[in-house]
């Protein structure tokens, strides 16, 4: 086997692969099984590994496909980018003439205390953020995963998934509105 060390895969990659999968699929058990499936598929296909990419990149490419298959199987979520569906931005801002583009009264951001803000970065409290990410839909979670887990630049993300820059910002806008609201409800004002 060319540069492959299957005995070390679990120690080297299992946690990272699990964290990666959790951005897209909420259930940890399902994600753990996906990681396992990935390792087994990799063993089966190890002769196809030509060493053109690193072992890690190769395993990740298999995992990515497993994740997409799993999302498809769940069938609930749309993997395509449908900009015609009812825009969640309209849940936040008025659209009639009088209130056009202004915060709806129940959505107005409240001031947060400094201590609540500082706590958000601490280990014990960051679970709330993970809970809020899990409530997002696709393709928002895909973009968060690319941006913050893979540290991909916005230009690369757009190129990879065929997104215009303005649509990228629309999606980021939606992410920020929803994450902030979710954290405020569950956190900031506590």
């Amino acid at each position: 086997m060319l540069n492959l060390n299957p005995e070390q895969w679990v120690q080297l990659y299992a946690d990272d692969m699990l964290r990666y999968a959790l951005f897209r699929i909420r259930d940890q058990n399902v994600c753990e099984d996906l990681v396992q499936d990935t390792f087994l598929a990799a063993l089966k296909g190890k002769d196809g590994f030509k060493g053109n990419s690193s072992e890690k990149t190769w395993l990740w490419s298999i995992l990515k496909n497993k994740i997409i298959d799993a999302i498809r199987k769940q069938g609930k979520e749309n993997l395509t980018y449908d900009f015609f569906e009812k825009d969640i931005i309209d849940d936040f801002f008025g659209s009639d003439q009088a209130s056009n583009g202004h915060w709806k009264s129940e959505q107005v951001p409240k001031e947060s205390s400094n201590s609540a803000l500082e706590k958000l970065l601490q280990k014990e409290y960051i679970q709330t953020l993970r809970f809020c990410i899990a409530k997002l839909k696709e393709p928002q979670r895909l973009i968060l995963q690319e941006k913050y887990f893979n540290e991909t630049s916005s230009d690369e993300i757009c190129k990879d998934i065929g997104l215009s820059k303005s649509n990228y910002w629309v999606i980021m806008h939606r992410i920020n509105l929803q994450l902030r609201k979710c954290l405020e409800t569950n956190w900031f004002t506590i």
């Binding site: 001031e111 970065l121 280990k123 993970r130 913050y148």
Partner: peptide, 26 residues
Amino acid sequence: CKYFLQQIKLIHQALQSKNLHDTVHM
């Protein structure tokens, strides 16, 4: 809107923080 910006700046930091990921283990 001022609060919004202040809060999403922090969310951005939290999303980048290692803590977000490191607390999950198989």
